[in-house]
């Protein structure tokens, strides 16, 4: 072997050793496959049905927050929220074109954790306190295991996660006894009501919205092609928050 060939071969082997695994990971992305097996739970929110119905919106938020012992803390820095209304230009920054219809511009949008197919929060969590459930796609949290590093909050492009800067107990108006509270130093967010879906019930916000409108919020399995949610998505044009980040959010909005 010539000296030149030896050096070339060594360099190629080194390059493959360094870059081979990451490149393989990108090409054979497991996350993209995960969503095709089992259930793929998602939600559709019909913004038209929320127009001028702030009462329904508040009921959805209240139902969730009271059921899950979410503290009521004022101030943007310390507040804790699982589901909340946000102005259009915050929720859909990149869609906020000039001269869009006033009803869309002025109508607050109900936002929550998107339970992404490719969740950036999951990869950064050191103790694996948050993960994507293979069987139904819920981005779950294990509050026992959370160490409060807040990497997930930095990773989430939707601001769906809140941190407990102090003991939340004194700030909870009525404690619901059959659901735990959180403790100081723990991150929390919407879990698609995992404690309810295991019993075959729909998420609390969906149930609350049904008291006003039958299909303002629809919850279902995207992998089931006969589900109502698939029917609605195939009949209406939907938008999602920041789809350009390829997180594949699973909360769809009808405008």
């Amino acid at each position: 072997m010539k000296r030149r060939d030896f050096i070339t071969a060594t360099a190629l082997a080194a390059a493959f050793g360094l870059a081979g695994k990451p490149v393989y990971n990108v090409l054979a992305s497991k996350d993209a496959l995960a969503s095709k097996t089992g259930k793929r739970l998602a939600m559709v929110i019909d913004l038209k049905k929320f127009e001028g119905n702030s009462e329904m919106m508040n009921k959805c938020v209240d139902a969730c927050h009271s059921m899950h012992n979410v503290p009521d803390i004022e101030g943007a820095k310390e507040e804790v929220k699982w589901i909340w209304p946000e102005p259009f230009e915050h929720a859909f920054l990149e869609q906020n074109n000039q001269f869009i219809p006033e009803n869309i511009q002025n109508n607050p949008i109900l936002i929550m954790c998107n339970h992404c197919d490719n969740p950036p929060c999951v990869g950064v969590c050191p103790p694996k306190a948050t993960w994507k459930r293979a069987e139904d796609g819920v981005v779950m949290m294990d509050w026992h295991r959370c160490i409060g590093c807040r990497y997930c909050m930095a990773a989430c492009p939707y601001g769906s996660r809140s941190f407990n800067w102090r003991d939340p107990r004194p700030k909870i108006k009525n404690i619901t006894a059959n659901f735990p509270t959180r403790s100081k130093g723990v991150v929390e967010k919407c879990t698609f009501c995992d404690e309810r879906i295991v019993k075959g019930l729909e998420p609390a916000c969906v149930v609350a919205s049904k008291m006003y409108e039958p299909e303002a919020m629809v919850f279902g399995d995207l992998n089931d092609d006969k589900s109502n949610i698939r029917k609605i998505l195939s009949e209406n044009y939907s938008i999602r928050r920041k789809p350009e980040l390829s997180t594949q959010p699973e909360v769809y909005y009808l405008i």
């Binding site: 009525n174 404690i175 619901t176 006894a177 509270t181 403790s183």
Partner: peptide, 19 residues
């Protein structure tokens, strides 16, 4: 009991039946 609700302090407000 930092997180789980102490049954001495709070009785369940909503039973499964109520749900």
């Amino acid at each position: 009991w930092d997180c789980h609700v102490d049954p001495d302090d709070h009785k369940p407000t909503m039973t499964i039946d109520e749900e």
